[in-house]
Amino acid sequence: MREIDAFDALAAGKSIHDDANFSWRVARHPRGNVTPDDFNWAQGAIPEPEPGQVLLKTHYLGLAPVMRMYMMGGSPSGEVPLGIGDVIHGRGVAQIIKSRNPNWREGDLVQGQMGWQTYKVSAMTPQEKFFPMPKNGLPAALGSGVLGMTGLSAYAGLFPTGDPRKGDLMVLSGAAGGVGSMVSQIAANVVGCDVVGIAGGADKCAFVRNHGCSAAIDYKNENLVERLDALRPDGIDLYFDNVGGETLEACMERLRMHARVVLCGSISEYARTDPFALANYTRLRRTDSRMQGFFVYNHIHRWDAVMSDLAGWIREGKLKPVQDIITGFENMPKALAQLYYGQNVGVQCCSVRGEPKDWR
């Protein structure tokens, strides 16, 4: 049995119903990629909201590689570190079904920190970063990814951090992933960059060529260095990094004058015992270039403007939203594992209950 298939056995026999609250909790801190033994399925009573609180019913949940760090007890996004038995952190789309808070109405749809659970009582504090979902004619599912924190990450990494310019010779790693599949399209179709995407496998490379990239490099089956030389003989103006490690190092060797390097993610390094040591950072000095990271929650003040821009580009056809939606709350662990086994295309999400009725 392949490692990823073991998650099907974990989900077998599990399902949710609306008269109880179901959750996935940390069974143990992961070592390497997540495994079925890292997750625990729990069932409890639906909580009742107190004055100032609301009761939320989960419809969609988004997934991101950082969730493994949460499960390990880390706190890369300022979240409360998770211990054994805690509900796993995660953002999603939910509907308010009971409200004892005058600022929030029953029936409203929101996007925010739900955790891996089918119901949640919340005081809607700023720390949970809940935002109302606008009725813009687009599917509510997009709030769990493209019109959620993944979309904000793509925008914040590309624009205020990367400063893209029309005609930039750009390279994008993780181009078939959640952030990457958005960055490629926005850079090409909105800004006018020429984007070379790096992805794993022939199918993913075909996908990225249909989503903003003029060419693709299959890092699993091609020599990355040789392909970079062939596709970027004049160097790189903008490198958007989602993977870190040797890919970052190879792109650093090819910086043009005044190039920009965006540090968004480092999924290739998450399971390493020792951190990757970047040996050629001095290329930044030689080319008057800059390498800059960003923390998505530092850009939360841009939320309304970014969501408006993204929704507009979707309606204009400049951004095709790609969400890899797995159905069934029981499949949340498998959905997370797919990120580490390279099986997702676009933003990885889970449909817990599907689209809410009579909302759009």
Rank of each mutant, 00 (worst) to 15 (best):
E3K: 14
I4G: 07
I4N: 07
F7Q: 02
F7N: 02
F7H: 02
A9W: 06
A11F: 06
H17E: 10
H17Y: 11
F22N: 00
S23T: 06
R25E: 09
H29T: 03
V34C: 08
V34D: 01
A42C: 13
Q43W: 01
A45L: 09
G52F: 10
Q53F: 10
L56Y: 04
L56R: 01
P65A: 11
M67N: 10
M67P: 01
M72W: 04
S75A: 15
E79H: 12
P81L: 10
S99D: 10
R100A: 09
P102W: 11
E106R: 12
G107P: 05
V110H: 04
V110D: 00
Q111T: 09
G112N: 04
W116H: 05
T118A: 09
Y119T: 01
S122H: 05
P132W: 06
N136G: 10
A141G: 10
L142M: 12
V146L: 13
S153C: 14
L158T: 00
P160D: 08
P164Q: 07
R165I: 02
D168F: 07
D168C: 07
L169K: 04
V171G: 01
S173D: 08
S173Y: 06
G174C: 07
A175H: 04
G177S: 10
G180L: 02
S181H: 06
V191F: 04
G192L: 09
V195N: 04
K204R: 15
I217L: 12
I217Q: 02
I217H: 05
Y219C: 02
N223A: 13
R227A: 06
D229C: 08
D234W: 06
G235W: 05
D237L: 03
Y239R: 02
D241G: 04
N242A: 12
T247L: 08
T247I: 14
A250F: 02
R254F: 04
L255T: 03
M257S: 13
A259Q: 03
A259G: 15
R272H: 14
D274V: 09
D274N: 14
A277Q: 15
A277W: 10
A279T: 13
N280G: 12
T282P: 01
R286K: 13
T287M: 15
D288L: 15
R290F: 12
I300W: 14
W303K: 06
W303M: 08
V306T: 08
E316T: 06
G317F: 13
K318L: 14
I325S: 06
I326C: 05
I326M: 14
F329L: 06
F329G: 01
E330N: 11
P333E: 05
K334C: 08
A335D: 03
A335C: 08
A337P: 02
N344F: 05
Q348F: 06
C349Q: 10
S351T: 05
S351L: 05
R353D: 03
K357V: 07
R360K: 15
